[in-house]
């Protein structure tokens, strides 16, 4: 049946079964591939998105349960890739293969929205649902702390936006 979804500020109407997880609606129907499939049972966090700002695992969220909630995916986290966490991830060269990192960033963004100055323990608790097989966890902790510093100071991101490489 048809569902009207608000994804990254845009409205989409999709005709899919009620039990179809939001993950597959995003990936296969709306062709938004930034949200990743990792486990299908809320064990790995690769599919983490926000529903009205709250982190959710898209792989176990039936489309019928979304209602009018605003859906935010990695593609919509910031208009130009300059969310403080994206910048901190860049400054710390966090990704290796990169596959889990969209989910990691979305979980971290939800953490900082609630806990602007997290401790290591806060970070471990909030991020324990996101698996990285490459083992980038130490840099994830560091990047979250760095982004939290950025947010705390209320400053703009400490990077220069340039056209350096192209």
């Amino acid at each position: 049946m048809p569902y009207t979804l608000n994804v990254n500020g845009q409205t989409h109407t999709v005709d899919v079964p009620a039990d179809m997880p939001l993950l597959w609606v995003l990936r296969d129907v709306l062709d938004l591939k930034g949200t990743k499939f990792g486990c299908g049972m809320a064990q790995c966090g690769a599919c983490t998105i926000h529903l009205d700002g709250e982190p959710a695992r898209a792989c176990v969220t039936p489309v019928a349960a979304v209602g009018s909630a605003r859906i935010t995916t990695i593609e919509g986290l910031s208009p130009d890739g300059t969310h403080p966490l994206q910048v901190a991830w860049m400054n710390n060269d966090v990704p290796q293969c990169g596959y889990c990192q969209a989910g990691q960033i979305m979980s971290a963004a939800a953490l900082l929205a609630k806990t602007p100055q997290p401790t290591d323990a806060d970070i471990d608790a909030a991020m324990a649902g996101n698996i990285c097989r490459c083992g980038t966890y130490m840099r994830i902790r560091q990047a979250i702390h760095e982004a939290a510093g950025t947010i705390r100071a209320g400053d703009s991101a400490p990077v220069q936006i340039t056209e350096a490489r192209d």
């Binding site: 990936r27 591939k33 990695i74 890739g81 860049m90 060269d93 990704p95 990169g98 960033i105």
Partner: peptide, 20 residues
């Protein structure tokens, strides 16, 4: 040291893996 070539795409959800 140099940022990996695909870093920006990875961080914005635009990197294309096989599953994509």
């Amino acid at each position: 040291d140099r940022p990996i070539y695909d870093l920006d795409d990875i961080l914005t959800g635009r990197a294309i893996y096989g599953i994509d």
